[in-house]
Every structure is written in structure tokens, then in C-alpha cells.
């Protein structure tokens, strides 16, 4: 129940961010958001498939809202990205926990730690992407190398987390 609520909260946060940034009328973005929310509820309540579609709709709504709002870069994009990833992971975890399996308590902590690490690494990667886009391309090779190294570092962190 806690995991499902967490997944719904993360999804709701991402949708709220999208709708807040949407230009008026914001209602034009509502159908996608509502459909995505319904799909997520179906996943969480009935364990049905459709998680990917729900995440896709939320992401699409956000991108549409940001693009329609104007040309300035939205600083909250990394947060929305991580919220969507967390929503997906928490939904999958919630469905997994419904299976009648007696598991060690430390497995919960390990998965929680791995998910936190994945979320932080994802946030770092998204922030890097957003930050690098703000750097003018005329700043030269050093920045490009730094960006590539950061991306590799983020990917390495993800691999390390997943292998633990």
C-alpha cells in the first residue's frame, strides 16, 4: 500500500508540475494527464499492464506543456524525469510485493537503497544534461569532455547500483 501510494504521489507530482507550467488553457493538457492517471491506477489496483503507457502519457504531457509555454529551459525537468522513474519503479515494486513470497527483511532495505541510488544517479544524469545544454557550445573541448565524463560516471553509478 505504501509503495502504491508512493508511486501515485510521484506520478501526481510529475503531472502537477506539467499542468502548472502549461499555458492557459491548461485544460487542453488534461485528457492525457487523466488517461495516464487512470492507467497508473489500473496498474496499481489491478496489477494490469500499462505502466509504460502511463509514464509515456505523463512525459508527453510534460513535454507538450513545456514546449507550449515558451523557449526558456525548464529547470524542473530533471526532477520530473526522476519522479516518473520513481513512479515506474515503485509501481513495479508494489506489484511484486503482492506475490505470496516470504522474503528476508533485508531484501526490502536493499531494494530501497538500490532504488534511492538509481534515483539519485538518474537525477544527476538529468541535471548534467540540462546543465550542459545551458553551456554555450563555444566554451570548447574541455566542457565537452567534462560532459562526456559526467555522463559516463552516471552510467557507471547506475551499473554499480544494479549489480549490488
Amino acid at each position: 500500500m505504501t509503495l502504491a501510494l508512493g508511486a501515485a504521489a510521484a506520478y501526481g507530482g510529475a503531472l502537477a508540475d506539467a499542468l502548472v507550467r502549461a499555458p492557459s488553457p491548461a485544460a487542453a493538457f488534461l485528457p492525457g494527464a487523466v488517461l495516464g492517471a487512470v492507467l497508473l491506477v489500473a496498474v496499481l489496483v489491478f496489477g494490469r499492464r500499462g505502466l509504460g503507457a502511463a509514464l509515456f502519457l505523463a512525459g508527453g504531457t510534460y513535454v507538450a506543456a513545456v514546449v507550449s509555454a515558451g523557449s526558456t529551459v525548464d529547470a524542473s525537468a530533471p526532477l520530473v524525469a526522476v519522479l516518473l522513474l520513481l513512479s515506474g519503479e515503485l509501481s513495479a515494486w508494489s506489484v511484486d510485493e503482492r506475490l505470496d513470497i516470504r522474503s528476508e527483511p533485508r531484501l526490502l532495505w536493499r531494494r530501497g537503497a538500490a532504488l534511492t541510488a538509481l534515483g539519485l544517479a538518474g537525477l544527476a544524469a538529468a541535471v548534467l544534461v540540462a546543465a550542459l545544454s545551458a553551456v554555450p557550445s563555444s566554451h570548447g573541448l574541455v566542457w565537452a569532455v567534462l560532459g562526456a565524463a559526467a555522463a559516463l560516471g552516471a552510467a557507471g553509478t547506475g551499473i554499480w547500483v544494479a549489480r549490488r
Partner: peptide
């Protein structure tokens, strides 16, 4: 296509998850 960074930032954590899965 849109020339925006937000969709790429949105894709970044999911790409990271894919890389982590591929390493298994």
C-alpha cells in the same frame, strides 16, 4: 526534433536504468 533539452533530460534516468539492466 523540437530542439529542446527537456525531453532529453526526461530520457536520461530511463537510459541509466537500461544501462543498469544491460549490465546484469
Amino acid at each position: 526534433a523540437l530542439g529542446r533539452v527537456e525531453p532529453i533530460a526526461l530520457a536520461a534516468p530511463f537510459l541509466l536504468a537500461l544501462v543498469a539492466a544491460a549490465a546484469e
